[in-house]
């Protein structure tokens, strides 16, 4: 029997008096790609940030790969096993693409520079921007920046990848190049939690869809079922609204 890679138990998160996550319990199995969707403000980003404890949650716990995050003393070590990709890329503007990618392997894992660069080379090839290695982030297009950010997140060979609206800040013609990279990752068995409004990606690539609203998980469904036969009214409304826009 395989154990879940991520196990979220009775997780709640408040910002002041505002309840952003309300008693969430959910598991994610290794090797699956799960899309998390829901209206704005429903807590999707907050949930992702709890999975690597960028957000200090109040009650409940997240168990990653058998380790409790709440009581973890080596949270940096755990985070190095979880890659994260942001809406606005968050590449380091003062470092070249190559140095963006090699920084964490060198400082977190203590790998020497040559080895780290050889590895970065392979990753850049994989995301299709090897020719941009020595440029600075502001010299790249949005799509190239996001692919560089994915390469940076992959550099520590994480067991889990978190994507928070990775294509929302991109011009339409660049969305597909980023989705293609994510699709390849999923095919190769990476465990992925993806917050996105790209319903095509959810339907074609994701194994499951989780629908959130007001800090709660409303529905979890196999991705085909979610679109054809949503269980909850709120999910139905949401799907109608999102699909209309397209």
């Amino acid at each position: 029997m395989t154990l879940p890679l991520v196990q979220i138990n009775n997780l709640s998160l408040r910002y002041g008096n505002f309840v952003a996550l309300d008693d969430i319990s959910i598991d994610f199995m290794p090797g699956t790609c799960v899309v998390i969707c829901g209206p704005s403000g429903s807590g999707k980003s907050s949930l992702l940030r709890c999975v690597n404890r960028l957000e200090d949650f109040g009650t409940g716990d997240v168990i990653f790969d058998g380790q409790s995050l709440k009581s973890a003393h080596n949270i940096s070590k755990i985070r190095s096993n979880i890659g994260m990709v942001f809406q606005h890329f968050e590449l380091y503007p003062h470092l070249s693409v190559m140095n963006n990618i090699t920084l964490a392997p060198r400082y977190v894992n203590g790998i020497n520079r040559d080895e780290a660069e050889a590895k970065a080379h392979k990753l850049l090839e994989r995301v299709g921007i090897l020719d941009q290695a020595n440029k600075y982030p502001d010299e790249l297009s949005g799509g190239q920046q996001q692919r560089a950010a994915i390469a940076r997140a992959l550099a520590l060979e994480p067991k889990l990848m978190l994507f928070d609206e990775p294509t929302s800040a991109l011009d339409p013609e660049m969305i597909s190049e980023v989705l293609q990279v994510m699709r390849d990752l999923a095919r190769n068995g990476m465990t992925m939690l993806v917050v996105t409004h790209e319903m095509g990606f959810a339907r074609d690539v994701a194994d499951e869809v989780v629908f959130m609203d007001k800090g709660k998980v409303i529905e979890r469904n196999a991705s085909g079922n979610f679109f054809d036969n949503p269980q909850s009214d709120r999910a139905k409304e949401f799907i109608d609204r999102v699909l209309q826009k397209i």
């Binding site: 960028l54 190095s80 890659g83 964490a104 977190v108 997140a153 550099a155 520590l156």
Partner: peptide, 11 residues
């Protein structure tokens, strides 16, 4: 958000 990005890589 730059700090969050850096922390997320394990720094």
């Amino acid at each position: 958000s730059q700090v969050k990005a850096a922390l997320s890589t394990g720094l």
